[in-house]
Simulated assay, not measured.
Amino acid sequence: MLLDRIQARKDKPDARLFVGPRGGKIQTGVLRKATHWDAVVAALGYEHLRRHDLRHTGLTWFADAGVPIHRLQQIAGHTDPRITQRYLHPDIVALQADGDMLSAHLRSPKRSQIGPKLRLVQ
């Protein structure tokens, strides 16, 4: 369905993929009703989940995939990159893996040949 909508709008890159019942922007009440949001999240045990939380998740996934912040800003429609930054929630496991990579790099034999050795500063 999504590919059909994209294909139908290829000559209109700014056209909405999905529109409300009157052809305009989809209002939140219409979306909530059409998706049976309240019943779905209750059945899943996520009553606390808001649709806006999915925006945070989606932008975080884009960032984790390597999409640069200036494009995330465009995707989100934000005017300020600091707003976009607030939507990003790094994965603690990925952050720990980044720290492990740095540690491995600093301990590598090649590192000792190309740069200064680590030293304790008191």
Rank of each mutant, 00 (worst) to 15 (best):
P116A: 09
I26A: 01
I83A: 02
S108E: 01
R55W: 04
P13Y: 01
K25I: 04
R32T: 09
T57D: 04
T60E: 03
M101S: 15
T57K: 07
I69V: 13
L72I: 00
S108G: 02
R9L: 11
P116T: 12
I83G: 03
H89I: 04
P116Y: 12
W37R: 00
Q85S: 12
F18L: 13
I114H: 10
L72N: 02
P68H: 08
I75E: 03
H105Q: 10
P13G: 03
R16M: 15
G99K: 14
A42G: 06
H48W: 10
I92G: 15
T57A: 06
I92Y: 11
I83Q: 03
Q7T: 12
L2C: 07
R5F: 02
A97Y: 06
Y46K: 14
R55D: 01
D80A: 06
I114P: 09
R50C: 09
K117N: 10
Y87L: 07
Q122S: 15
I75H: 03
A43E: 15
M101L: 15
I83C: 04
R5M: 05
V41A: 05
R32S: 08
F18Y: 11
H89L: 09
H52V: 01
V41L: 07
D100S: 08
D14A: 15
G99A: 14
I26M: 04
K12A: 09
I114F: 09
L95I: 10
A104Q: 14
D100L: 13
T79W: 10
P109E: 14
K25Q: 13
M101N: 15
H48F: 02
L118W: 12
Q73H: 06
K110C: 09
G29W: 02
P90N: 04
A94L: 15
L54F: 11
K33M: 11
L72A: 04
H56D: 05
S103R: 10
R119F: 14
Q122T: 14
I92A: 14
L3H: 08
R9Y: 05
A15L: 04
A34L: 09
L120K: 15
R107W: 11
L49W: 08
L2D: 05
P21I: 10
G77R: 00
G23S: 03
K33R: 14
V30F: 15
M1V: 10
V121C: 06
A39V: 07
A42C: 05
L59C: 04
Q7D: 14
L31W: 05
F62K: 05
W37S: 02
R51C: 12
I114Y: 13
W37N: 00
G23E: 07
H70E: 08
G66E: 08
G29F: 00
L95V: 14
I92C: 11
D64N: 10
H56A: 00
D11H: 07
L88I: 13
L49K: 01
R107Q: 14
T84Y: 00
T57G: 02
K33P: 03
H105Y: 12
P13H: 02
R32Y: 09
R50D: 07
A97K: 13
I92H: 09
L54M: 06
V121N: 09
R51I: 14
D11Y: 04
S112K: 15
D38I: 01
R51T: 09
G66H: 03
A42P: 05
R82H: 12
Q85K: 11
T35N: 11
A104N: 11
L95M: 12
R119V: 15
L72R: 00
R82Q: 14
R55A: 03
H70V: 04
A39K: 11
K25M: 10
G45I: 06
E47H: 03
L54K: 07
D91I: 04
L44H: 08
